[in-house]
Nucleic acid binder design. Sequence first.
DNA 1: CGGCGCATTGAGGGCGGTCAATTGGTGTGG
DNA 2: CCACACCAATTGACCGCCCTCAATGCGCCG
Lengths: 241, 241
Amino acid sequence: MIEKLILSLQKYGPVSDEERRVLEQGASQVRDYAPHEDIVREGECPAESCLVLEGYAGRYKLLAQGTRQIMALHIPGDFCDLHSFVLKRMDHGIAAISPCKIARFPHALIKEITEHHPRLGRALWWVVATDGAVMREWMISMGRRSAREQIAHLLCELFFRLQTVKLVQDDSYELPVTQAELGDAFGLSTVHVNRVLQDELRPAGLITLTRNRLTVNDWEGLAALGEFDPTYLHQAPREAA
Amino acid sequence: MIEKLILSLQKYGPVSDEERRVLEQGASQVRDYAPHEDIVREGECPAESCLVLEGYAGRYKLLAQGTRQIMALHIPGDFCDLHSFVLKRMDHGIAAISPCKIARFPHALIKEITEHHPRLGRALWWVVATDGAVMREWMISMGRRSAREQIAHLLCELFFRLQTVKLVQDDSYELPVTQAELGDAFGLSTVHVNRVLQDELRPAGLITLTRNRLTVNDWEGLAALGEFDPTYLHQAPREAA
DNA sequence: CGGCGCATTGAGGGCGGTCAATTGGTGTGG
DNA sequence: CCACACCAATTGACCGCCCTCAATGCGCCG
């Protein structure tokens, strides 16, 4: 059940059988969520952290004027809110984007890991740190890249991350994210996301995007456009994956 | 020497005398840096993490077209790159913004903390997680706030963080950050930063800003403009352990 | 006094926003 | 099997925030 998580953690270092057992037994409650359903609500003080088993989820915050900012996209193998272990009160919500399956790890278990399984504890620390690296890259996109560049960059990032958990086949992957959601992730309007996809990325032959599957037709071109350098994901290079 | 760090960590929970001693002895090398000088360079694999003792530092990345994005501002008591402990290769640089004094903690020490001082280890985890919370808030600013709102928000954030380490006096604090740097932090041009300060924040009586000191004249107004809610800074101790 | 870094201001333009209408795919009830 | 509802994608018209280029203070220091 947690094989995607293991695949992900192995990018940091080997996971022993015992460590795997600890994690397996810790994934207590498992639940399915429908798109738009809240997995964790802003303001809550959850006693568990959530792991995505299947589907897409995302961190978000609603602003006063009714706008929304999505601050992360989570794929299978990702912890959404490992930080809730130390931060207690959620400063943002987490919602299902596609139908998804979520497992919860009691904070008590994580605390025990930090006390009795230091190496695994450092692996979890790595999860939090990598999450930060992804956020920094999103900040770069939002601050200094044009709409077409940031969209190209995100598509590359997802390609890479999904590859780690073996969810890329034949240069294509599931992308059950609406254009409105993409817009909220990058501070763009739905209209403009559409125009970029429509008038720039597709005509350039870089991608094919159907209802919910994306195919990368020209990886070099897409990576060049998004100025994508996977170093920040702290994983093995694409070829070796 | 590390009293600012202790003040900061106490926002998570109490720090015992022994924990304090561990940190004090760990702060091995201390060095001064001049503005614009690199403290850690992108691509390096440092064997220590940096703590700001005095002055301002910042994370940044240079893009191909010559633009720059600043992804964090660090004040006294902040670890700049605690994440380098688990991420190894720096995916960004860290530079001095004002003249500043930096202490370095060997990763070996941090590893030892994770193994023999679990509570202190969790406090460091809290540092990384809080850092992430600040980044999420910056993402909200960059994605969904207007220039005047994001600048107002940043000024509020700094006020709060500096208050924790006792660097706010009479509603004012040192702000040795140029308008160009503020622009790079938010993806704005220098010109526009100036216009917002000049035509909006100052005339509204919200702030006074001299060469390098900022005074908040109307906290309510500034916080309202930036839609500032300090919850995300997680400054209320909440752990019983 | 001259150089330099930073703040400030003006003019003009473009990227991306808003508002609004239309198309198209999918699911559901009749 | 069709009508209808609904949601997402798409397109058009217009606009404004913020950008770029460029020039002008202005304070500090050698």
